[in-house]
Design a protein around this nucleic acid. Structure first.
Lengths: 202, 202
DNA sequence: AGGTGATTTTGAACAGCGTTCAGTATACTA
DNA sequence: TAGTATACTGAACGCTGTTCAAAATCACCT
């Protein structure tokens, strides 16, 4: 009972990815399987393999969408003050991980066994995120050179990411009356305070 | 052909965990399976289930060993200067993740579907790590209160952990002539510089 | 030494997984 | 309408974690 033209191939791809996102949101990463996705879009397993080369490929495309979605949210941060902009980006990042915990996990835990560690599309998007942070830092510290700015953006991003992951996996051991939000704010404050000191790495 | 007294149950457990560590070191996390571990120790699959309640349990016990190993390495850092001590701990942490990448991944990626997010033993060990960082900070800033010290230790640990994970998953996008080591050192320097300013969160 | 009960170990079995591919049903073309 | 190209199916393969009746061995008692 083969069919045809029920949907465009692009539509099918979209349906499959959307279904996959729903599945991992409801059942977790471990609940994702080709058979479930196929059933969800009303096709057989084999049909999925005409849309994606394999489950690995589907996961990478999921990550593409996730990162695209995250970047869009971050770029909506509209603050004139660069400090507020950095805090806003970090807040969005943390909120995103909380809203889509399984997609966020996939973003960092998925990797292929062979070949390149990251597909090019994904690399480009991550590069874009760093450039965005770089932009804030350039406004904050117009006199520092490119190298120092790149260093600082990676320090910032490492801290925010680490905080988000530790919190998300219950490894932050927050004392009473301390939230991950407190830590995020103070993390950025502390770093900027350190960089405001003229004496630091002239 | 059942046997007995070939090994103590504790010996068997040890053999199984050691084999599992070797398997994931050689074949990656995805290569770990109950049948492989059973074959490696010369027993059948069923026998494994008298040592561990399931694969989940085995993974938690692996994490127990990994964290114990990591803590031992960190506690060997013997620096009188608290700043050097913090830098040393961070260096060890990063080096450990590089030496045992798959075990380190398991430590942060493994989680059970149900019940408690973390076994108690593991929680205790993580708590110990925070206390160790807290100790360094107490020597550095004897005048700040407990709450502020806990806040700072979590900021530090978040940064180091995030940096390590991003580097380890090729998501740090290091420019030429910049290493993860540079970032680690500057991360700590910057934070401490921020905290040295009297004006900050008195 | 022989028997008996407790304990340890086996391995077949089950359901589910990713992946492949010969075959079938449909749509387009001539 | 016949033929061809395309879309799709679903059984099959080898793998996975997990269970459990049966088998093999040990420890002990007579």
């Amino acid at each position: 009972m083969a069919r045809r033209n029920d949907h465009t191939r692009e539509e099918l791809r979209e349906m499959a990815l959307a279904s996959a996102e729903r599945i991992i949101a409801q059942e977790g990463l471990a609940g994702l399987s080709t058979r479930k996705v196929a059933t969800a879009i009303g096709y057989s397993v084999g049909a999925l393999y005409t849309l994606f080369s394999n489950l690995d490929d589907l996961c990478w495309q999921l990550n593409e969408r996730t990162l695209s979605c995250l970047m869009a949210a971050i770029k909506e941060v509209d603050e004139t003050d660069p400090v507020a902009c950095l805090q806003g980006c970090a807040r969005i990042y943390q909120a995103f991980a909380e809203q889509y915990p399984e997609r966020w996990r996939l973003l960092f835990e998925h990797r292929s066994n062979t070949d390149n560690p990251l597909p090019d599309q994904l690399s480009t998007r991550i590069g874009g995120l760093f450039e965005h942070i770089d932009g804030c830092l350039a406004r904050l510290y117009p006199r520092i050179d490119r190298h120092e700015r790149q260093l600082r953006s990676r320090i910032l991003w490492s801290g925010i990411h680490g905080l988000t992951q530790l919190e998300h996996s219950n490894k932050l051991f927050l004392p009473d009356a301390m939230t991950a939000e407190d830590i995020r704010i103070h993390l950025i404050d502390s770093l900027l305070a350190g960089w405001d000191k003229e004496s630091h790495h002239a």
